[in-house]
């Protein structure tokens, strides 16, 4: 399942996409995120999944444009820590 967390508002699209079929619940992205945007949850959208899955936490879902801003400087942007940490390549950012 492609779980898109975030929003679209007048200023643009701000979504973090988690491919829950790829996510193995290892939690490395959770540990590395400096803004604590990600968290491991029991997948409430897939009641038959047995292992935890990563999701954007409730607290950050409506403000990821701002929460993720420190990792996205206007110049000299590097690979995002969450994407770097994810071995199965399950995380994407739309902006």
């Amino acid at each position: 399942m492609l779980a898109n967390y975030g929003y679209k508002d007048g200023s643009g699209d701000f979504f973090i996409t988690i491919d829950t079929d790829k996510c193995n619940g290892c939690g490395k992205c959770v540990a590395i995120c400096p803004a604590r945007v990600l968290g491991l949850i029991t997948d409430e959208s897939d009641p038959f999944r047995d292992i935890p899955v990563v999701a954007v936490t409730e607290e950050h879902r409506r403000k990821i444009k701002y929460s993720c801003a420190p990792c996205k400087p206007t110049v000299g942007r590097k690979t995002l820590p969450c994407i770097y940490a994810c071995q199965p390549n399950a995380i994407k950012h739309s902006w």
Binding site: K63, K65, Y66, S67, A69, P70, K72, P73, T74
Partner: peptide, 12 residues
């Protein structure tokens, strides 16, 4: 203010 600051942090 917190939204403005997050935006400003992008430029350092």
């Amino acid at each position: 203010a917190s939204r403005i600051i997050s935006m400003a942090r992008r430029i350092g």
